[in-house]
Design a binder for these strands. Structure first.
Length: 303
DNA sequence: AAGTGGGACAACCGCAAATCT
DNA sequence: TAGATTTGCGGTTGTCCCACT
């Protein structure tokens, strides 16, 4: 139902909200709640439609909103979530307490997206833009982008204690001067092909390498000091991961999924180019699927 | 001081899903 | 069960502010 239709029966005001209108809306919601948005304007004495009231409340007046700029951690979460979920801003915002989908969307479009494009990355796929990866203009990036790394391979590397990647203190998405310098040779033996991580495309790690071989947030590899004193960091990260996995219903499905036959697995990933037999056998052999795979991995896997 | 361009943010539009009658 | 209504979401546009010329 469109806005015109919901507002057609009443003469509604549009545009920016005045402080008086805000006050009326807050008072009304505090007194009556907002179980029925269509009745809120009438109760509040506002010449607005319910939809407009709802938007104003959710995006601006809600008391639990966090104002101010996004932290590097939040940027990392957005980046990781977007890689997996695509433009599902409401889903992404659920992982950022106090942030709205509108805020996240605006931040993405005004900041992260441009940043990625400036670095030669496709904001939709999170992969290097082909013309840059093959062209001579790729410059310093070119040498590290030849091999597509799957989400699975990168995450698994991150999950494994056998790997330590270079860490960059203070790394931020907003640091325009940072370019990842690959000090390791990511051998393709750990790359299990390319898979679809979000509705737009494939891969996970082009930008994760761009932001320092890892991203801030879920996929972040432990820094040295964090490995030495892990409890708080790990607890927080685990809580976030578990929450995320729960929200996509993965935890409910993971045990079942583990026991499903090959056909089910192939059905789930029939659009990918995974070698499912190889992956499954590798994972089961190393018990990776059960013990090392993080919830974030699972979310990626599930998507 | 006035004009202009770009960034950030708020709000609107249109659609689809969910819910109600 | 069908139609009407409400809610939620993503894309897009509008507005304000600030830096720059």
């Amino acid at each position: 139902m469109g806005h015109h239709q919901c507002c057609s029966k009443q003469k509604v005001k549009r545009g920016l909200w005045s402080p008086e209108e805000d006050e009326k809306l807050i008072r009304t919601i505090n007194e009556h709640g907002h179980s029925c948005w269509s009745s809120v304007p009438k109760l509040a004495g506002l010449q607005r439609c319910g939809k407009s009231c709802r938007l104003r409340w959710i995006n601006y007046l809600r008391p639990d909103l966090k104002r101010g700029s996004f932290s590097p951690e939040e940027e990392g979460i957005i980046l990781d979530c977007h890689r997996i979920l695509g433009n599902r801003w409401a889903q992404i915002a659920k992982h950022l307490p106090g942030r709205t989908d509108n805020e996240v969307k605006n931040f993405w479009n005004s900041c992260i997206k441009k940043k990625m494009m400036a670095q030669g990355l496709d904001p939709k796929t999170h992969n290097l833009i082909p013309s840059l990866s093959l062209g001579s203009n790729a410059g310093h990036l070119n040498h590290v982008y030849h091999q597509p790394y799957s989400a699975f391979s990168t995450i698994s590397m991150a999950s494994s204690s056998h790997f330590t990647l270079p860490s960059h203190e203070g790394l931020s998405l907003l640091d325009p001067n940072f370019h990842y310098q690959n000090s390791m040779n990511f051998d393709t033996q750990y790359s299990i092909g390319e898979t679809s991580m979000n509705p737009y495309g494939s891969g996970v790690s082009d930008e994760s390498r761009m932001w320092g071989g890892t991203t801030v947030g879920f996929f972040e590899l432990p820094r040295e000091e964090e490995m030495q004193a892990p409890p708080l960091f790990q607890q927080q990260q685990q809580q976030q991961e578990e929450q995320m996995a729960c929200e996509v219903g993965f935890d409910d499905e993971i045990n079942e999924e583990t026991n499903k036959d090959d056909q089910d697995l192939e059905t789930s990933f029939n659009s990918s180019s995974f070698d499912l037999e190889f992956i499954k056998s590798s994972m089961l052999a190393s018990d990776m699927y059960n013990s090392s795979m993080t919830s974030m991995d699972r979310l990626a896997w599930d998507c």
